[in-house]
C-alpha cells in the first residue's frame, strides 16, 4: 500500500512546525510520537528536527537514548542524524552532550557511538 502525498506532507509539516515551536513541550511530543514511530522516514524527520532545534533537551533525545537518533537501528536514520549534527553552525551544545555521554552513559554501545560522532564533529 502506498502512502498518499497529502499524508506525507502533513506529517512533514507537523514535525517541522513542532521543531520550530518555542514551547518546550513540543520536544516531548516529537520524542514520544516521532522517534518511536515504526516508519523510518518519520523517525528520520523527527531526529533531524530535534537536532535543528539545537537545544539541550532536543539534542539529548537523539544522542543519549538507545534506539533513537545516532543510536537508531536504521543506518539511514542514524547517518542522517549524524549528518545534521555535522551541519550545525553552533556545535557547542552538541559537543558538550557528546562528551558527557562518552564519560557517563551506562550503555557501552551508546558511549561508542557518541565517541565516534564527537570525533567526526571535532574534525569537521
Amino acid at each position: 500500500m502506498v502512502v498518499d502525498k497529502k499524508t506525507v506532507k502533513n506529517v512533514t509539516n507537523i514535525i517541522e512546525g513542532l521543531g520550530m515551536n518555542p514551547n518546550s513541550e513540543s520536544i516531548g511530543i516529537l520524542e514520544d510520537i516521532g522517534t518511536n514511530s515504526k516508519v523510518d522516514a518519520i523517525r528520520e524527520m523527527t531526529s533531524r528536527a530535534l537536532v535543528k532545534r539545537n537545544e539541550h533537551d532536543s539534542l539529548s533525545v537523539v544522542i543519549t537514548n538507545k534506539g533513537k537518533g545516532i543510536n537508531d537501528m536504521s543506518t539511514v536514520v542514524a547517518m542522517s542524524t549524524i549528518n545534521e549534527l555535522l551541519s550545525l553552525t553552533d556545535k557547542t551544545e552538541a559537543m558538550q552532550i557528546l562528551t558527557d555521554t562518552v564519560e557517563q552513559h551506562s550503555d557501552e554501545e551508546v558511549r561508542d557511538n557518541a565517541r565516534s560522532v564527537k570525533a567526526l564533529m571535532a574534525l569537521s
Binding site: 497529502k6 506532507k9 502533513n10 512533514t12 509539516n13 507537523i14 517541522e16 512546525g17 513542532l18 521543531g19 520550530m20 515551536n21 514551547n23 513541550e25 513540543s26 511530543i29
Partner: peptide, 13 residues
C-alpha cells in the same frame, strides 16, 4: 493542508 508555520505557532500542545 497543514503548514509548518501554523504548527510552529500553536499554543495548544
Amino acid at each position: 493542508g497543514i503548514s509548518a508555520k501554523s504548527v510552529s505557532k500553536m499554543e495548544d500542545m
